[in-house]
Design a binder for these strands. Structure first.
Lengths: 226, 226
DNA sequence: AGTTATATTTACTGATGAGTCAGACTAGCT
DNA sequence: AGCTAGTCTGACTCATCAGTAAATATAACT
């Protein structure tokens, strides 16, 4: 019973079948998340039933529960994707060697890409209050860290002179407001491409924040850095 | 029984009692709206039950239905208040004789005042989708007019030179995003006063939008006018 | 073929919450 | 006092979903 000749012809490699299964499962889970995120964004979390999500996918409701244990977990996953994008942006900014303003723009661009992106369109703006208490605590804490980091980038910019004098907290709320509001109006079918929007918003933010004398476009590396 | 001495002492004037009743009714209706708006804003429309609203007011649920015929009507009223503020701002801007940028700032300031204001804190960001189809159509149409007017102010600013070259549509989404996101984070108990926030945001917007060579603060009336 | 693990569905349960109804309470009027 | 209109409440109903259980299909492997 140990030799498996047919397995060699049917299944290319020993663990391969299991891998394919897992891979399919992963894909399906992602499809569920994508559809749900889009629906939550468009019609709101509370106005979207699990049956709605299921019918878009052409399956029945209980199937969804194979991939997410509850509707709230689905929402939690959406929040995580959004925050992953934020943190990815922060990491990029951290890696970049430049002024605070440059870092800020790199970060926000990456964050916006996430919002527009493939799996994106995640309900950044959706009910934190619909989460379970534990999930909510987690999301709130993580968000707080992201906000604090945003504030930190702006404070850095103020101190290195790339950003004009301002209250970093308020300025970060200003910038995050612009970005977080995007899902409220952006539609794939709209007239503007994500690139146009990001470009335009980045320009507006830069000129809004830049120190009066500083160059508007940080195309040339300027100061501070070694 | 025809002479009514007690009426003279109790009720000052013939129609006065009825007036007082109406006045009380109006006040109560407003109280309901204020509490509901605040709750909708904090926890979301769907996460707020009519019982919640009632218990904050110390009354029972059916009482609310004396003042609003449905939960959706309550939401509709919230939207109306927010849009009233927007339109009031537009009227102010229209009355002001100055550059497009000045008008824009006047408008947005007034709009923000509404958001912070007494009856304010209205769920600008809340489900349009929870409204009845008719109400939704109404709100969407009115919002569209407000957006268009915002866009118009920016286009005016671009053409009169007070605002740098930009796509008015995207710039208006930028500005409205900043403002509409405020209810998502502002709390009366927070560290910043509405005045600080408005001042700060106005400054950031002005420097973001102003034409490169134009004065950053339109403190002295400069050009065009007269 | 048969056996097992996984995937999916139809048909339910149970909770929540909007909205109603019939009656109680109050205040103004005569 | 007694009548009337306006205001409020306790106790319902009824619809909508989130989530589950049990049964059925599919595929993977021997």
């Amino acid at each position: 019973m140990s030799d498996t000749p047919s397995a060699a012809t049917r299944a290319p490699a020993p663990g391969r079948a299991a891998f394919d299964r897992d891979e399919q499962r992963r894909r399906k889970r992602e499809a569920v998340l994508r559809v749900a995120a889009s629906a939550f964004n468009r019609r709101g979390f509370a106005n979207t039933s699990m049956d709605d999500v299921a019918s878009v996918l052409g399956v029945s409701k209980p199937t969804l529960y194979q991939y997410f244990k509850s509707k709230q977990e689905l929402l939690y996953a959406c929040h995580q994707v959004a925050m992953d994008n934020g943190e990815a942006g922060l990491a990029l900014a951290d890696a970049h060697d430049g002024t605070g303003l440059e870092k800020l723009v790199i970060y926000l661009r990456r964050y916006m890409e996430g919002i527009f992106g493939d799996l994106g369109n995640c309900p950044v703006l959706t009910d934190v209050d619909s989460l379970t208490p534990e999930d909510r605590a987690d999301v709130v804490a993580r968000r707080k860290r992201i906000s604090a980091a945003t504030k930190g980038l702006i404070a850095l910019g103020v101190s290195d002179g790339s950003i004009g004098p301002c209250d970093p907290k308020l300025a970060s709320l200003f910038a995050l407001g612009v970005v977080n509001w995007i899902p409220a109006w952006y539609r794939d079918s709209g007239p503007n491409t994500p690139e146009e929007i990001m470009e335009s918003f980045a320009t507006l933010l830069i000129s809004g924040l830049a120190a009066p004398s500083a160059p508007k476009r940080p195309s040339a590396k300027t100061k501070k850095k070694a």
